[in-house]
Computed example of a mutant assay.
Amino acid sequence: MMTILKKINAWLHLWLGLASGIVVVVVGLTGCILVFETEIEDMTLSHLHAEHEENAPMLPPSELWKSVNKALPDKKIFSVWYHGADRTAHFSLDSDSSVYVNPYTGKVVAMIDHEDFFHFILDGHVGLWIEGKVGTMIVSSATLIFFILLITGMVLWWPKKWNKSGRDRSFKIKWRAKFKRVNYDLHNVLGFYSLIIALILTITGLIMGFAWFNKGFYWLSSGGESAPTYLRPFSDTTKVNVVTSFENVDKAWRLGVEKIGVYEKDAIIVSFPKKSSDPISLCVDMYNGSWRYVYLDQHTLEQLPSDVQIDDLGVAQWLRRTNYALHVGAIGGLTTKILYFIASLICTSLPITGFYIWWGKRGKNKKKKGKAISQLRSTELSITQSKN
């Protein structure tokens, strides 16, 4: 029975690996590049940094809005992103470009097209540069297959005997051996060492890729509870039925940075309501890839009951809130990013080394088959000659 299960496991590992290999290589390689996106942009893009006098205060959203509206009077402005001290703020609007503003002076610093290098890489990572949902579905499906491959690979990796020879084969790369053996060790040994991070990458990716997986993971991590239903917040229009003034947007911003935000208070996203029923949304506590949204009634600035307080998070809610940070390796800063980069690089190599292992065995099997046929023909010829 165990022999049959091992054969099924090996068969699944082989053919699922061949089926998803190219997609895994693309997703893994683009993931390696995206790990250090923030660091690379900080070093290469001057418009992300804001010059200002010492102890100069940041201007409120209304003042920055005026500058952008003057530069682009025909565009709808949705929100402003404050990225923290010494950094420019940027505006989200119905345009192909993002507008960067010095938050201390209100001066427009740059207008940058969305379609930059990292946006191109991200499109490949999430959708293989295929328009619509098809590419995303292919990537999500390949991620699910890769998750299965990690489990079946662990079964194949498991040493038959935990003696010195078995441990060496499973934990060490025999660099002085022939290329085939080195390639096998690169697949087998490095696959094991990257397993934990690879599982985090795939699970967090599946949470973003499949609603059923998202709900199932929440149910599992919460001990059987269902994920809370999203409640869309609305401002109360029974007393006031006009869009609030910028004064309330500025007050909401101050509430976000002075009272609502727990850490990284200078980093915040503030929305500009378009309808009287829209809330003012604040994205606060933007730190290491995590954030939370708080919604305020635009007329009264009272907090609407659609979000969870940061100090009330259970395990499942914390995992949901930090899922993106866990996926990109931002949760632990530069150290985890380096580990994620190495693990992503190994994940990228696994389909390549695995394919070479299969191709080598395929050639070996052909040689064995050819040799067996030759021996059979030789035997038949000998029998024929003896009869004659």
Rank of each mutant, 00 (worst) to 15 (best):
I173H: 04
S281L: 08
F217W: 13
T244P: 08
S349C: 11
E41S: 14
I8S: 02
N365T: 10
G21K: 00
Y324G: 04
W129A: 04
L313M: 14
C347L: 08
D116R: 15
F341Y: 11
V80Q: 05
K337P: 06
A19G: 02
M154V: 04
W253R: 04
V240K: 11
D311L: 12
F147W: 08
A56R: 08
G360R: 03
I196A: 13
E302P: 07
S386F: 06
L122G: 09
S349L: 14
V24N: 00
S79W: 10
G256V: 01
S46G: 11
A316M: 05
S281M: 12
D96F: 01
S20M: 04
W219D: 01
N388L: 08
A343H: 05
L313G: 09
N241M: 07
F213T: 08
Y218E: 02
P61F: 13
K251E: 07
A227T: 05
Y230Q: 14
T335L: 15
V35P: 07
F147C: 10
S276P: 08
T336R: 12
K161M: 00
G256S: 02
L122D: 14
S245N: 12
G216D: 03
V134W: 15
A89K: 07
H13P: 01
L199P: 00
R169S: 02
L14Q: 03
L59M: 14
S140K: 15
D266F: 04
V243G: 09
G354R: 05
V35F: 02
K387S: 07
S378H: 11
S281V: 10
A19H: 06
G333H: 10
A10D: 02
P273D: 03
R254S: 04
D297K: 07
S20C: 04
V68D: 03
L345H: 05
V249G: 07
W157E: 00
V182D: 07
V155F: 01
L195S: 00
V108W: 12
K239R: 11
G106D: 06
L381Q: 15
C347P: 01
I342Q: 07
V257D: 06
T244Q: 06
G223R: 11
L220R: 05
K337V: 05
N288T: 01
L381I: 12
H327L: 10
T204C: 10
V249F: 05
Y287L: 13
T237M: 09
Y218V: 04
W15E: 02
H90S: 10
D236A: 06
W219I: 08
N248F: 06
I151A: 02
P159I: 00
F120Y: 15
S222F: 04
T238A: 15
H187C: 01
D86F: 12
L48R: 15
G127Y: 09
A343Q: 03
A177F: 03
A71P: 11
F272C: 09
T379A: 15
I207F: 08
V108H: 11
W358G: 02
D94T: 07
P305I: 09
M2E: 05
K364W: 13
G153T: 00
Y324Q: 05
V134C: 09
Y263T: 13
L326E: 04
L304P: 02
T202E: 00
L34H: 05
I196F: 12
I207Y: 11
D311R: 15
H90I: 03
W359I: 01
